[in-house]
């Protein structure tokens, strides 16, 4: 049997809101070490990898490895019924065909249960090679969200170029061009506003803004986003979920 209780249920709501427009359905894999998901969008251009560690849950039990197929739109419908302050418990029998979501309000006055039908989904687990990246950039997630949104009003693609001191985002389109530079700033007073660059090699890669805007829906999960870039490799756009795990997006370069 699988049973997991997350005191901050809002976190699960935010995860699903961040990925539901990118992937239609996916298998959630549960084992002793935690709750994870790996899925590509239908055009095989981007990949979502979520992992929530067992110790990030208030209670976690998984007797056997199970894989639960869900349609994200349906999961989102159910999680929208949970209050932002509710604790969420997920439960499923080993050979069950449903997963139960239990929502508890903070004062335990309201308890609700929703069952979602599981589905069989063919999915292939991809081996993502461990790589050492040419450049790793950590920027405030709200700043990244604003940059990709602003640039999408000018062009369809963005060139991200990283040097020792700064990361530059550039685009151009029919009406003109734009570039936004963020300088390294290890702000001590306000760590949430820091921009940090770790570089082995200067790198410049071009990506579709449509996907980066979709990834930025994960902004509420983390104060920072980490971009990992290497020449001719997919970018990793990573949101660390404090104390619980990570949500990573991979996007092939243009």
């Amino acid at each position: 049997m699988f049973e997991a209780r997350l005191a901050q249920g809002a976190l699960l709501k935010k995860v699903v809101e961040a990925i539901k427009d990118l992937i239609e359905d996916a298998n959630f894999d549960c084992n002793n070490s935690g709750f994870s998901l790996q899925a590509m969008d239908s055009s095989h251009v981007s990949l979502v990898a979520l992992s929530l560690r067992a110790d990030g849950f208030e209670h976690y039990r998984c007797d056997r490895n199970i894989s639960m197929g869900m349609k994200l739109a349906n999961l989102s419908k159910i999680l929208k019924c949970a209050g932002n302050d509710d604790a969420i418990t997920m439960k499923s029998e080993d050979n069950g065909d449903t997963i139960t979501f239990m929502f508890e309000s903070p004062n335990q006055e309201r308890l609700s249960e929703f069952d979602l039908k599981l589905m069989d989904i063919d999915s292939e687990h991809l081996g993502i090679p461990e790589a050492e990246y040419d450049a790793t950039v950590k920027v405030p997630s709200s700043e990244f969200q604003r940059i990709v949104k602003d640039l999408a009003s000018i062009g369809d693609t963005v060139e991200i170029s990283v040097t020792k001191d700064a990361v530059k985002f550039s685009t151009s389109g029919d009406i003109g061009s734009a570039n936004i530079m963020c300088r390294q700033n290890k702000s001590v007073d306000k760590p949430e506003e820091s921009t940090e660059i770790d570089i082995n090699e200067p790198v410049a890669l071009t990506f579709a803004l449509r996907y980066l805007n979709s990834f930025a829906k994960a902004t509420p999960l983390s104060p920072h986003v980490v971009l990992k870039l290497s020449k001719d490799l997919p970018v990793v756009v990573e949101y660390h979920i404090p104390d619980v795990g990570r949500l990573g997006f991979y996007l092939a370069p243009k």
Partner: peptide, 13 residues
């Protein structure tokens, strides 16, 4: 410029 698929990067041959 076309968009590359991730299959080329992550799928084992």
């Amino acid at each position: 410029m076309g968009q590359k698929s991730l299959d080329a990067f992550f799928k084992r041959p």
